[in-house]
Amino acid sequence: MTMNEQHHTISYKSLTGTWVALVALTALTVAATRLDLGGYKVLTALTIACIKAGLVIAIFMHMKYEGRLLRWLLFLALVTLAIFIGLTFFDVLYR
């Protein structure tokens, strides 16, 4: 067993830093959605949610330190979900 012994220890400090960023982003999203942004409200909220999700995946879930394989597979899963939603909208938008 050679290749998988690269376990990466993430320091308490960077984990806590990530947590602070996540809480700050939560505050930001609450504040932003209190404003009257019209149609951009959904976009703003979802963009911030995606950034938060990215942080959780990269740091908490160690994806930043995984090899290419897992990253590609995660990408594949997300693309699949996006396609499922996207193609359905060909029906929903034009009916």
Partner: peptide, 11 residues
Amino acid sequence: SGMSDTAILVF
């Protein structure tokens, strides 16, 4: 089923 024509075309 009553799906949109665009969707029928695409699928």
